[in-house]
Amino acid sequence: MNQRFVQVDPAVRLWSEERGDPRNSTLLLIMGAGASGLGWPEELVDALAARHRVIRYDHRDTGRSSLSFDTHPYRVVDLASDAIAVLDAYEVERAHVVGLSLGGMLTQLLIADHPERLLSATVMGAGALSSTPLSHPDGSRTPVDRLPSIDARVLELWSRPHEDRGLEGELDHRVEHWRLLNGDQIPFDPEEFRALERRVIEHAGRYEAPMVHGRADHSGMDRTDELARTEVPTLVTSAPAEPVFPPPHPDHLAQVIAGARLVEIPGMGHALPRAVHAPLAAAVLAHTRAVDARVRPGAAS
């Protein structure tokens, strides 16, 4: 396991980590808004690293990366450029990319804007960057603005004012957040997520969370045409207990990305509890193995 910092520009430095055999194809993990790379559970990262050189990193204003938004504001599309900067720093020409939540949106930007850098893509827990309506088997169509909205309980928690709760109070708040994001199908283990957040806080060296990604400029993200004609092999995970982009958002996403394949992860919500690690890793690895077999004959063994 190796760590390094990636200097994106004079104001932005990103923490990153790699593990796994460097001779294997690279898999880049992109986390959600306000979440550092340590939001990817160790067991899941290790499962993916059994077949890949896995790289994860801290977004700007998370973890050990630069806290830069207040002095150098940026756009969400700049966060996608950061992913390319990480690949460049590791001298990776093409990678499998897996993104969750905001990371899933950034993955779509990479599919659209940098297809030559992707071996494959996996998108989880994200809305489509497309204005194309959802088509139903009966021939009807649902406009994007009529798709289900975020669970009201999640919105209420997000609306609470940011305050200094102290370390234990901050941990309580984060665990409650994960409880809601977990959904109602897989039993929630608060100690599992408390331990995860303790590691995140120890890694960052602070418990205060800037949470500035929601303030970043979200304009210029529609990629309807580019996603409709992409040739990047894409897997979309369907999470039946998803509270942020509930079904049928995954069906919509799989429709707007050309050739995308949809796979349901039983019981999954917007979190990554231990119960989903094995089926999620199996789905991702089946996807990447098939692509590697085409791109690098013999790599799927």
Score class of each variant (00 low, 15 high):
residue 64 R to I: 04
residue 65 S to R: 02
residue 65 S to C: 04
residue 66 S to Q: 08
residue 66 S to E: 07
residue 68 S to I: 01
residue 69 F to K: 01
residue 71 T to D: 12
residue 71 T to V: 07
residue 72 H to K: 02
residue 73 P to I: 00
residue 76 V to F: 08
residue 77 V to P: 00
residue 79 L to Q: 11
residue 79 L to V: 06
residue 80 A to M: 02
residue 80 A to C: 04
residue 80 A to L: 04
residue 83 A to I: 00
residue 84 I to Q: 02
residue 86 V to Q: 08
residue 86 V to C: 03
residue 88 D to S: 02
residue 89 A to K: 02
residue 89 A to E: 08
residue 90 Y to Q: 04
residue 92 V to F: 11
residue 94 R to M: 08
residue 94 R to Y: 06
residue 94 R to C: 07
residue 95 A to N: 03
residue 95 A to H: 05
residue 96 H to E: 00
residue 98 V to L: 14
residue 99 G to L: 06
residue 103 G to E: 10
residue 103 G to Y: 06
residue 103 G to K: 06
residue 104 G to I: 06
residue 104 G to Q: 05
residue 106 L to A: 04
residue 108 Q to M: 08
residue 109 L to M: 13
residue 109 L to S: 01
residue 110 L to T: 11
residue 110 L to R: 01
residue 112 A to F: 00
residue 114 H to Q: 13
residue 115 P to L: 07
residue 116 E to V: 04
residue 117 R to T: 10
residue 118 L to N: 03
residue 120 S to P: 07
residue 120 S to E: 04
residue 122 T to K: 09
residue 122 T to P: 01
residue 123 V to R: 01
residue 125 G to K: 00
residue 127 G to D: 08
residue 127 G to R: 10
residue 129 L to Y: 10
residue 132 T to L: 14
residue 133 P to M: 02
residue 133 P to V: 01
residue 133 P to F: 05
residue 134 L to W: 13
residue 135 S to K: 13
residue 135 S to Q: 15
residue 137 P to C: 09
residue 138 D to P: 14
residue 139 G to S: 09
residue 140 S to Y: 07
residue 141 R to K: 13
residue 142 T to I: 13
residue 144 V to I: 15
residue 144 V to K: 05
residue 145 D to I: 04
residue 146 R to F: 09
residue 147 L to V: 03
residue 147 L to M: 12
residue 147 L to C: 09
residue 149 S to K: 14
residue 150 I to P: 00
residue 151 D to Y: 11
residue 151 D to H: 12
residue 151 D to T: 08
residue 151 D to V: 08
residue 152 A to K: 07
residue 152 A to P: 13
residue 153 R to Y: 05
residue 153 R to N: 09
residue 154 V to S: 07
residue 154 V to W: 15
residue 157 L to K: 15
residue 157 L to P: 13
residue 158 W to E: 12
residue 158 W to G: 07
residue 159 S to V: 05
residue 159 S to F: 06
residue 159 S to E: 14
residue 161 P to D: 06
residue 162 H to R: 15
residue 162 H to P: 06
residue 163 E to Y: 07
residue 163 E to A: 15
residue 164 D to M: 11
residue 165 R to E: 13
residue 165 R to G: 11
residue 165 R to C: 14
residue 166 G to I: 13
residue 167 L to P: 12
residue 168 E to Y: 09
residue 170 E to G: 12
residue 171 L to G: 01
residue 172 D to K: 03
residue 173 H to I: 00
residue 174 R to F: 05
residue 175 V to H: 15
residue 176 E to K: 15
residue 177 H to T: 12
residue 177 H to N: 11
residue 178 W to I: 02
residue 178 W to H: 08
residue 179 R to T: 05
residue 179 R to F: 13
residue 180 L to Q: 12
residue 180 L to C: 10
residue 182 N to T: 09
residue 182 N to S: 15
residue 182 N to V: 03
residue 185 Q to Y: 06
residue 188 F to N: 10
